[in-house]
Amino acid sequence: MIHHHPDDNLLTEYAAGTLDTAQAIAITAHLHFCTQCKHKIMLMEQTGGAMLETLSPEPIAPDSFDSLMSMIEKGENNRRSTPRKAGDLPNVVSKMMDHQSLKWRKVNSSLKTANLVAGQKQHAVSLQKINAGGVVPEHDHRGVEITVVLKGSFSDKNGIYQAGDFVLKEPGDVHQPLSASNEDCLCLSVESAPVKLTGLFSRLLNPFIKLRVA
């Protein structure tokens, strides 16, 4: 059961096609698990369709249809769409994983991360794997960080997040994710700025955060 969804603003920007690529990838990953948001998107797209009908028509070059038909006949712009694999992971994620060799980097004893190539520069897109029972170092967010749980679950002081859950952290949200004890947790992460680990140093700067020993 999914309990954490993107808000209507993010869904609207996705439906209208103005959301940045990386964040849209996170939304698509969530939609793989979430019928409720998928339904909302369809309603939002209906609004787009209805608005399209209300625009004032702009005349098109008279030969446009004929040149279109000749392009179609010549088979130009024929695009082969790759068949989708039905699987546990969202298509968008497995496609990125299939097209590159993942380089897992160890952050600490329980957290590994691998960058994903998402074709944009605004965000860092990565996979994060937390070992069963593992604890991620407490960290702050300099930018917006979206996490979509792909497998397993994790929790922090605000709640438990399971497969499909969409978690958005704003700058200044400090949290310390903790994986469920019985299975590894795999997440998709989209961050607008590198996550700053709040370790020993920042404890001094930020006396309100209690540092727990992992």
Binding site: T21, A24, I25, T28, S81, T82, N91, V92, K95, M96, D98, H99, Q100, V117, A118, G119, Q120
Partner: peptide, 8 residues
């Protein structure tokens, strides 16, 4: 990127 717009 290997991703096409339709994948997203």
């Amino acid at each position: 990127s290997s991703l096409e717009t339709e994948d997203i």
